[in-house]
Amino acid sequence: MGSKYLCICLFLVTLLSFGQNSKSDTFWVYNLEEAKEISKKENKNIVLYFGGSDWCRPCMMLQEDFFDDYKFTTYKKAFVFLYVDIPRNRNLLTAEQKEENYKLLEAYNKKKTFPLVSILNTKGKVLEELSGYSSLRDPKYHFELLEKYN
């Protein structure tokens, strides 16, 4: 009987942990109009990130080395972060989100390079962009890009 309660407690603790981890990702916005609205209201530039969550190995490495790096947390309040995922698995996005993401792909990533990090002003104009990510796994240039517009 005691091990049954222990399993239930461990399960609840695990659920709470996952809930807290998902809250750490709440800095992402998934709609350009919402990002521009927040950007104007808070007078912040937008970081537009194109990734392929289920197929793009450089995107996965950039996620680990840049977006998940402790240094990145210092920039979370300085920008509005817009994430555009272009997965191969069509079930990962709702129909509405897929439509939004492909519109943004056509407008802001005509060469379809992944990963792509762009800095936009409050009106959605591209100020600068950085495409690709090296297998050397050095996010130095990505941090320099954020620092330049911070």
Rank of each mutant, 00 (worst) to 15 (best):
K112I: 01
L104F: 01
Y133I: 05
P139K: 08
K40S: 10
Q20G: 10
F81Y: 13
N109D: 08
N89Q: 06
Y30D: 05
L146I: 04
E128P: 02
Y83S: 12
L146K: 07
I119P: 03
L32C: 06
V117M: 15
M1F: 04
T94N: 07
Q20P: 05
T94C: 09
S3F: 05
C59S: 13
P139Q: 09
V13Q: 11
Q63G: 09
F66L: 12
L116I: 01
G124V: 04
M60G: 01
S17V: 12
K103C: 00
S135K: 14
K111Q: 15
Y30Q: 15
E42L: 02
K76W: 03
S135W: 15
T14D: 09
F114C: 04
K123I: 05
F66E: 02
E34C: 02
E129T: 07
W28K: 02
L32M: 14
A107V: 07
L32S: 12
K76A: 10
K112M: 10
N45Q: 03
E129C: 08
K112Y: 05
W55K: 03
K4P: 00
T26C: 05
E128L: 01
V13R: 13
A78I: 09
L48T: 01
K140G: 07
N45I: 06
E33Q: 15
F79R: 07
P87G: 09
L48Q: 00
T94D: 08
V117L: 10
P115I: 11
C9W: 13
R57I: 13
L105K: 11
C9V: 14
A35S: 11
N150E: 04
L62K: 04
E100V: 05
I38P: 00
Y49H: 05
K4S: 14
K148Q: 10
T113M: 12
Y83D: 05
K23Q: 11
F143Y: 02
W28V: 10
L104M: 11
L48Y: 01
F81P: 05
S39A: 15
I46D: 03
I46Y: 04
